[in-house]
Amino acid sequence: MVPGGYDAPRAPSTIDRLLVRKRIVNRLLCLLLAAFLSVAALAKPAQSADAVVTTMTEQVLAQGALTDAVSIKALVESAVMPHVDFRAMTARAVGPRWRTANEDQRARLMAGFEALLIRTYAGALSEAGGARFRLKRSAAVDASTTEVWSDVTVRGGREPIALNYRLALQDDRWKIVDVSVLGVWMVATYQTQFARVMERSGGIDGLIQELEARSKAP
C-alpha cells in the first residue's frame, strides 16, 4: 500500500493482455465480416446472366424480319448494345495495339467495328421473323465470368443455330464480352483478321481506314 492508504496500480498480467488482444481481434473480425457482407450485397447482380441473354434475344426476335440498315442499327442500339461491353470487346479484337491508340482512334475503331458487325449479321436479322429462341444452360467460368448456351431455330425447319455468350460481371450487371455462332467465337475470329490488316497496312490507322471503307461499301 502506498502512502495515503491507496493500493498501488497492479501491472497487467499475461492473461489480462491476452483477453484484451482477443477482444480486439473479435472486433476486427466482426468489422471484416460486416464489410464482406456489404460488398457481397452490393455486388449481387440485378439480373442473372441467363435473364440478360433471354431478354435481349427475345426483344430482337420480337421485331421480326428487318431488311434495311437503319432499322437494324436502331434495333442493335436499343436492344443489344446496353447489354454489351463493346469497348472491351473491341479492345480484345484489336489486340495489344489498342493500348497505344488514342481516344479518337478508339472511338473510330468502335464505330467501325459496330458497323462491320451490323453488316455481317444483317442477313441473319432479315430471317429473324418467326425464329424461336431456346436457353439451354449456363456455367460459371470464374467468379466474374459466365457462359450461356442457347440456340435459335429460324423458319423453314432447319437445324437450330448454336448461339453462345460469354458475359463478365461489372459492378452489379452482366455484360456480354464475346459471342459464339456455331462454335466460332467472334472476338478471336476478328482478332486474327484485324492483326493481318494492321500488319499489312501499318497499324491502327490502317485498320480504321479498312473498317470505315467496309462500312461504306455497297
Rank of each mutant, 00 (worst) to 15 (best):
S180M: 04
D178R: 09
S201Y: 02
A195I: 01
T189D: 12
E212Q: 13
M198C: 07
T192H: 14
S180F: 02
Q191M: 09
E212P: 01
V179Q: 06
R200P: 00
D205L: 07
G203T: 00
I204N: 09
G203Q: 02
Y190G: 08
A188V: 10
I208P: 04
R196Q: 15
M198Y: 07
V184A: 14
Y190I: 09
L182F: 06
R200W: 01
Q193E: 15
L211W: 09
V187R: 09
R200Y: 03
W185C: 11
E212M: 05
E212V: 02
G183I: 08
S180W: 03
T189Y: 14
F194S: 06
M186N: 07
G203D: 00
A213H: 12
R200M: 04
S180D: 07
Q193V: 10
G203C: 03
A195Q: 08
R214H: 10
T189G: 10
F194A: 08
S180L: 04
L211K: 08
S201L: 03
V187N: 07
T189Q: 12
S180H: 03
Y190C: 09
V181A: 12
A213C: 02
Y190R: 08
V184Y: 12
E199V: 02
R200C: 00
A188K: 14
S201A: 12
V197R: 04
R214D: 14
A213T: 14
E210A: 12
A188I: 03
M198I: 11
G203L: 00
A213S: 11
G183F: 06
Q191V: 02
L182T: 12
I204K: 05
Y190K: 08
F194R: 11
G203F: 00
L211M: 12
L182R: 13
G183K: 11
R214T: 09
R200A: 04
S201E: 13
S180A: 15
L211Y: 11
E210V: 03
A195Y: 03
F194V: 08
M198V: 10
E199P: 01
A188T: 12
S201V: 00
L211H: 08
L207E: 10
V179I: 15
I208F: 04
Q209S: 13
T189I: 04
S201F: 00
V181Q: 11
D205K: 01
R196E: 12
V179T: 15
E199A: 15
Q209N: 13
Q191K: 15
G206E: 01
F194H: 07
G206C: 04
